Amino acid sequence: MNAASSAPSATAGGPATATPRVIGSDVVVSDLSISYGSYCAVRDVGFEIKAGTTMALVGESGSGKSTIALAASRLLPRGTTIDSGSICVNGKDVVRMQGNELREMRGDTVAYLAQDALAALNPVVRIGRQVSEIYSVRGGDRKTVAEAKAIAALAQVNINDPERVVRMYPHQLSGGMRQRVMIAMALAFEPALLIADEPTTALDVTVQAEILQLIVDLQARNGLTCLWITHDMSVVAEMADSVTVLYGGRMLESSDVYSMFDTPRQPYTRKLLDCFASGRSAKPKEAFSAIPGSPSAHSTTTGCPFAPRCDRADDVCVSETPRSVELAPDHWVACHHPLDVGTDDDVKTPALAASRGGQS
């Protein structure tokens, strides 16, 4: 897959695959800051996603991942402000859209796939009506045409017997089937960008693998650009071409997925990967690695937000905000004391190659 890269530029990388029919778009996020009242949840974040590729936005809970996802779909709750920056999809800034342009953007240009399908679907409306309304309300199709398109959409996401499923209510479907319905609805009008906000978190491992493979197949078929929000590094290894790491609302590291797994340069990224590597250890009695402390209390205006939990931090880390520097081609790191390449600090986990069918 082609690797999308971090801001300010992007190049190709990673193993080659068949070229998809690209309907997706380059996505450029620049200097984005977002506040909930007086609390700044996202500060000066920037990254770029190449058309037809997937970027994973990773970090612990409270790092700002979902806030960015909601901002890109313009679904932020009341009382939230986008203080600065831009989110450009197909060369148009989503942040500055209003009225009809904003309504047309949702679904046509950007689609949002939520984490909890049961909560997102209307519990008292049959599946067929919920899917067909997309075509009748947005597309202006007659009822019979919209219903036929709903059945076809469900078949596209590998739902067996869609004619029966359209007559069912959400609670009558399994978690995996509900998520497939949500995917069908999100992709109804072939958006350029699909934002997937931890859509497999509530699913068991087997169903999660099926949903991940479905999205990979749909992306290859349609050339979707994807922004994948997750804290699960195994999903990153499976899905992403590039990765951006967030902490305390700030971007700490961004690169292609192979560089991120093989040579992480930010101590926080290294600790995230330590958790991932230990969790996949062949030694059953080996304890899970954990990052001491909690990220919830650390949103700083100066200094590195990870400094209170970092064993490499000094006075400079607390007093001065690190700039994002390109330490290797398209590998951007914000850290006063980045890890060295070729030392014991390297993770060199084999899990990424294994998850990609042995590719490296």
Rank of each mutant, 00 (worst) to 15 (best):
Arg221His: 05
Gln179Cys: 07
Pro338Leu: 02
Gly342Cys: 08
Asp315Cys: 00
Ile159Glu: 02
Val145Glu: 15
Ile183Phe: 06
Lys149Val: 05
Glu320Met: 01
Asn100Thr: 15
Ile68Met: 04
Gln219Arg: 15
Pro77Asn: 09
Ala202Met: 08
Gln359Cys: 03
Cys40Leu: 11
Ser174Ile: 13
Ala148Thr: 15
Ala117Gln: 00
Asn158Met: 07
Ser132Cys: 09
Gly52Cys: 04
Val205Asp: 12
Ala12Lys: 14
Glu60Arg: 14
Arg250Gly: 01
Ala120Gln: 02
Ala152Met: 06
Lys65Ala: 08
Ala120Asn: 01
Val125Asp: 03
Asp93Glu: 13
Thr81Cys: 05
Arg21Ile: 03
Gly342Thr: 08
Arg309His: 10
Ser255Ala: 15
Val207Ile: 15
Ser84Asp: 10
Asp274Arg: 11
Pro305Leu: 02
Gly139Trp: 08
Gln156Lys: 11
Gly91Gln: 03
Lys143Ser: 10
Thr144Asp: 07
Arg167Pro: 10
Leu193Gly: 12
Arg126His: 14
Gly37Cys: 05
Val318Trp: 06
Leu212Glu: 14
Ala3Arg: 12
Gly24Gln: 14
Gly37Trp: 13
Ala307Tyr: 01
Val27Gln: 09
Tyr112Ser: 01
Asn122Cys: 04
Ser278Ile: 02
Val29Ile: 04
Thr269Ala: 05
Val131Phe: 05
